[in-house]
Simulated scan of single mutants.
Amino acid sequence: MADTETEILEDGDIFFFFRPKVEEDDPEGRDDVQRFGFVLRPRGGGTVRMMMVGGKRLPRLSAHERLWGFVETVANRAADIEKDLRGEDYDTKTRGRRHLPAARPAGEGVYVVSLEDGQMHLSYELELPDAPGEVQAELNIAPKASFALSIKNPEKGAPRNAGLSDDEQADYPRKLQEEFRGRRFASEDVRLLDAEGGEFVLVGARDDPERAYGIDMQTEDEDYGSSEAIRRLRMVKSRHPVEPLFEGDWD
Rank of each mutant, 00 (worst) to 15 (best):
A137E: 15
A103V: 07
D32L: 04
S150P: 07
P42T: 01
G197H: 08
V53W: 03
H99E: 13
L67D: 04
L164R: 02
P209E: 10
G197C: 04
R183I: 00
V113C: 12
V242G: 00
D130N: 02
E222I: 05
R174L: 10
L164I: 07
G37T: 07
K237P: 10
G54L: 03
D171L: 03
H121Y: 11
S238R: 11
R35H: 09
E28N: 09
R97T: 12
V113Y: 04
D249R: 09
G157I: 11
F18Q: 04
R231S: 13
G198H: 04
D130V: 07
F36W: 06
E108D: 14
F70I: 01
E243Q: 13
E155C: 02
V242C: 06
R181T: 13
E188I: 06
D3A: 15
T73G: 00
R104Y: 02
D117Y: 09
E65Y: 06
R234P: 03
I215V: 15
L122R: 15
E108I: 12
L149H: 01
L176S: 14
K152E: 15
A186N: 13
V113H: 04
E23A: 11
L202P: 08
E243I: 06
V190K: 15
G225C: 12
R206S: 08
V22E: 04
